[in-house]
């Protein structure tokens, strides 16, 4: 059973919930990044409906809430180690289907990848509720349907923002109760996009052979990619990080270990001990990313890492389109296969 809420009652729900939760939603960021007088939509804590931006895709993905760009793992002295505390409020994240799938991908990497679970991700993940925003018809660069990420069920609550009202349907009793007291019953069930404007054909894993690593297709990206790393930092499913040990200036016997996002397109990503960088050419980075997103990860987890959110297209200053790259690869591989 769903509910229909008037905006002012939805705001009442938000303020009731904000006693226990930080509500994180797509909103205008309080800063200008690349260009002056250009709004940046990202994820931040909100307090009211009017702050929520639904007509634009976010530039940064919600992954930063569960996997912050920079996070202290533990503090050390020369004899002791103390894990960083986690004192943040529980969170509700309002996000779209692709991103919820993206978070499932991150969860695989952090929690289902071998025996050791990543406690830093775990503690954030376990104190978060996901509210799914229903998509009307998506945005120009979306290709979630091609990546089987247009549907999801691991949400606590589904929301549809209409011109006048807000429709909600929650699997969570506590939320349902609240919605019930502020709204009127309505038979609302989330519906999913079946088709995007953009269609991407992903080559079948079994058809991909190492010869494609040497294909000319990567040459173009060597010339075009400037290795700015935005496609990584905006991607919902990029989960690479690197760690740094910081020794405090005022006490050389103390310090902390931090982890920060890394990305295959960023400098420093593939530098090995000794300073040898084995993927210096930017096209090689593109190849590495592509293979990881639509081949390697799938081998391990049975799903593609890329969820088709399309942010890598939106943010690339060189107008490199990842969806186009996958399509090109598909054509090459299928042609090879026909021979």
């Amino acid at each position: 059973m769903g509910y229909r809420l008037k905006p002012k009652y939805f705001d009442d729900v938000l303020s009731a919930l904000s006693k226990h939760y930080d509500i994180m939603a797509p909103a205008l960021m309080p800063f200008e990044t690349r260009h002056s007088a250009q709004e940046v939509v990202g994820y931040r804590k909100i307090e009211s409906l009017k702050e929520i931006v639904v007509d634009k895709k976010t530039f940064f993905s919600p992954k930063e809430i569960l996997f912050p760009p920079r996070e202290t793992m533990f503090y050390f002295t020369d004899s002791k180690i103390r894990e960083s505390e986690y004192e943040e409020k529980n969170k509700i994240i309002l996000l779209r289907t692709c991103d919820l799938n993206g978070i499932e991908r991150l969860k695989n990497m952090f929690l289902n990848n071998g025996d050791v679970k990543d406690n830093y991700f775990k503690r954030r993940f376990e104190s978060t509720k996901f509210w799914l925003i229903e998509c009307d018809d998506g945005f120009d660069s979306c290709f979630c349907a091609s990546m089987n990420s247009n549907k999801a069920d691991s949400y606590s609550t589904a929301i549809k923002f209409t011109e006048e009202d807000i429709l909600v349907d929650s699997n969570d009793n506590m939320f349902s109760e609240l919605f019930k007291s502020y709204g009127v019953e309505e038979d609302y069930k989330v519906s999913f996009i079946e088709k995007n404007k953009l269609e991407v054909k992903v080559p079948l894993s079994e058809n991909i052979n190492p010869a494609v690593f040497e294909h000319d297709i990567w040459q173009e990206y060597i010339k075009r990619c400037i290795a700015c790393g935005r496609c990584n930092t905006s991607c919902i499913s990029c989960s690479c990080f690197t760690t740094h040990d910081i020794i405090y200036d005022d006490n050389k016997r103390r310090g902390e270990r931090r982890r920060v996002w890394a990305g295959c397109h960023l400098d420093n990503f593939s530098i090995m001990a000794g300073g040898h960088d084995y993927r210096t050419k930017n096209g090689e980075r593109m190849r590495f990313k592509t293979m990881h997103k639509i081949y390697d990860y799938h081998k391990r987890f049975g799903k593609h890492m890329c969820v088709g959110c399309g942010r890598c297209d939106d943010v690339c200053p060189e107008y490199i389109s990842f969806s186009k790259c996958i399509n090109k690869l598909y054509d090459i591989i299928e042609k090879e296969n026909d021979k």
Partner: peptide, 18 residues
């Protein structure tokens, strides 16, 4: 403002004041 342009995560941003 070059640094704000280059930062891929919005850690270096522009001041709201001009």
């Amino acid at each position: 403002g070059e640094c704000a342009m280059k930062c891929p995560v919005g850690a270096m941003t522009r001041s709201s004041k001009k």
